[in-house]
Design a protein around this nucleic acid. Structure first.
Lengths: 345, 345
DNA sequence: TTGAAAGCGCTAACAG
DNA sequence: CTGTTAGCGCTTTCAA
């Protein structure tokens, strides 16, 4: 173990290669490769010697070189909006599990809802030669992906469809879910219902708004402009929007919240109010059961798993036309959505 | 756009290389490399021709080859326990932000609290030649990392210290936080306080238990065996543990929950009970403000950011002895921790 | 300003 | 069963 000649110790930052292992074990380079990759055709004795050399040297195969030679990286890239959002954690984890089952690693990136950043991440992943890409798009134009897809990078969009290209997508039923949620409020006697959602450039936001309008139309109810607020999900903005539609001569008696961020803030606003206001939110939230929040639940883990499975099916060579899967949502009644409007209303 | 000779179209799955770009632009390979990497010494006219060829061919530099030559990958690996746990989302996101600021990509993996899986992930990351590693350890022995660290892979442990090697670590003050939380309960009149925590092999679990015992000792209170339950954070297990210590002849009048998973379940258990029981939980939880849950808050994003900054300082060549940073926790009183024990107690 | 040649560490193809 | 050679796509070095 202890070497006397200090300059013979492995230098810091230098990694042994297969060549080094081969020299130490007194075998050929290819034999080392065989052992490292568990290929057949190596004497147990030779294998043992190679193994010893590997351990002694602390050898670890350089996958960059391997990738360069083999063409495949056994890794996939996931671009989402914000890993810190509790909606994306389970999604990301589900993707990871599927990747793991296929022996692939996951590279992650948050676009922060910025189209340029999305593109930057996607292209960086492509430069790393990920085998496939799962994208929750921030931008609305994905033609920049055409050369990549042509080059064989499998791509699946999740939560929102791709823009201006034909690609696989796995979505939740935003329209249907919102429609059901708003219909639920209508069924409990509400006539003046507000909608607070994310920015209109986000597909799910407009789909949910469409669902809201459909439900109102189904019930023969007009929608006042002041009842609809699309924009950032920053707490201040949501708070202002909520307070605006809850005051004035004709306040709403119920609110439909367009996503988990909005719901959380609306719950806080409503908690500080005298008269109860009904609420249904899109996306389930932790502890919503204890707070009695009625929600339209979408399972983000299923979204991720479904997308990842589709991706690997493509990587396994399945060659069918791109298609879109829409996953159903579930209404979970817990109280807040069953509050009736004040009698005078 | 439309090519008539179908067999002249780029074949599916084949990517253009710098050589292809060079041929098309009528320049040398190195000139393409210069343009792609924004190096000086290229005529604007030449550059334009190269750019055109790049766009026409849909060329994207192969970073595997680049890495093989340069030695650095501009990527770091993050191994955590479970990306779906809301505690790790912000941590991961914070690491990502720092990495981004340093031009590095993030490879992510969940160990699922399994030591073998942790090692598997870490070594896979090392094979990809990540420049650095941020690890939330699941296992207790990290000697397998010695060759990697010797080879120059910067490594920082987060949330829990490394086992059997000397390495940088960024931790929360589990001991001090738990001690403060339990002291808070004592200050509100409690004498019989339960502790429900994670598995004893997890460092933070035992540290928090130590803090609990210290606070009890500080107050001159004995701890009955039935008041302490360490184990899985599965809801059923936590529920059973909570119900056990809340029943019997001498039930606890307050519970200290060892982490966010435990807190969530305990809150559910207590919600179904007749008499109020005090609760302080380690980790803040979304909507805990609305539920009035008193917590010992630790900022997981700060944990991640601090670790990542330290990692990049190492990568920038700072060469000091490994050290441990302990971040303070904050008690946030919201009601559940200020409930007093029943008078008869 | 530009390009030719060498080589990073590995695997594929082929020989012995 | 084992080893040799070529070459993946890029950057480095050096020469023009």
């Amino acid at each position: 173990m202890a070497e006397t000649a200090r300059h013979h110790e492995p230098r810091y930052g230098i990694r042994p290669t297969m060549k080094d292992v081969a020299a130490r074990a007194g075998v050929g380079l290819k034999t080392v490769s065989r052992v490292v990759n568990g290929e057949a055709g190596v004497t147990p004795d030779t294998e043992r010697r190679v193994m010893e050399a590997i351990d002694a040297l602390g050898f670890r195969r350089n996958d960059s070189a391997r990738v360069l030679r083999k063409g495949r990286t056994a890794s996939i890239g996931l671009v989402l909006e914000d890993l810190a959002d509790p909606f994306y954690g389970p999604l990301s984890r589900a993707v990871e599990e599927v990747a793991r089952a296929h022996g692939a690693l996951l590279i992650n990136g948050s676009s922060a809802e910025d189209a340029d950043r999305e593109q930057e991440l996607v292209l960086a992943f492509c430069a790393r030669r990920v085998d496939g890409l799962i994208v929750i798009p921030a931008g609305g134009d994905h033609r920049y992906l055409e050369p990549e897809i042509k080059a064989g990078v499998a791509t699946v969009f999740v939560d929102r469809p791709a823009g201006r290209i034909d690609a696989d997508a796995v979505l939740s039923d935003s329209f249907g879910g919102a429609r059901e949620g708003v219909a639920h409020l209508v069924a409990h006697g509400h006539r003046r219902i507000g909608f607070i959602g994310d920015q209109p450039r986000i597909h799910t936001a407009t789909e949910r708004l469409r669902g809201y309008r459909a439900a109102m139309a189904d019930a023969g109810l007009a929608v006042a402009d002041e009842w609809v607020a699309l924009g950032s999900t920053e707490p201040e903005r949501v708070r202002e929007a909520a307070e605006a539609m809850l005051s004035g001569p004709e306040p709403v008696t119920a609110v439909f919240a367009g996503n988990n961020r909005v719901t959380v803030t609306v719950v806080r606003v409503l908690a500080g109010r005298e008269h109860p206001v009904a609420l249904v939110g899109f996306d389930d939230i932790e502890l919503a059961d204890l707070l009695g929040i009625t929600v339209i639940s979408q399972d983000s883990a299923t979204l991720g798993r479904t997308a990842a499975e589709r991706l690997f099916r493509r990587l396994d060579g399945v060659d069918e036309a791109p298609s879109t899967v829409v996953l159903p949502t579930t209404l979970i009644a817990r109280g807040s959505g069953e509050i009736r409007p004040p009698a005078a209303s």
